[in-house]
């Protein structure tokens, strides 16, 4: 089976350890990071990660919940969405 991409978005106030903690959670779930980009605009930190969840050790819904909880601990909003929605909206 080929890659199954998903997009993780992290939005909130910047602080130490956001990338570290998100990456750690992903590694624990055997999820490979394919691409990361981030910007900081007026103190608002936005990070977008493209990941491959094909070999994820957890169900998508559990992963989503774990990321959401992690976001709450870090004071940021974290969401994961399958990439098809972006493909549908932005590619002919």
């Amino acid at each position: 089976m080929s890659e199954q991409k998903a997009i993780i978005s992290v939005i909130g106030v910047d602080r130490v350890g956001i990338i570290y903690n998100v990456s750690k959670l992903l590694a624990e779930n055997n999820i490979n990071i394919l691409d990361i980009s981030q910007t900081i605009l007026k103190d608002i930190f936005t990070m977008i990660m493209i990941v491959d969840i094909k070999n994820s050790t957890n169900d998508f819904s559990i992963l989503k919940e774990d990321l959401k909880n992690l976001g709450e601990n870090l004071g940021v909003k974290i969401d994961i969405q399958k990439e098809d929605i972006f493909r549908a909206m932005h590619r002919l």
Partner: peptide
């Protein structure tokens, strides 16, 4: 992949 702006737009 997607441009940062595209992903950001959907979100």
């Amino acid at each position: 992949g997607f441009a940062f702006e595209e992903i950001e737009e959907t979100i």
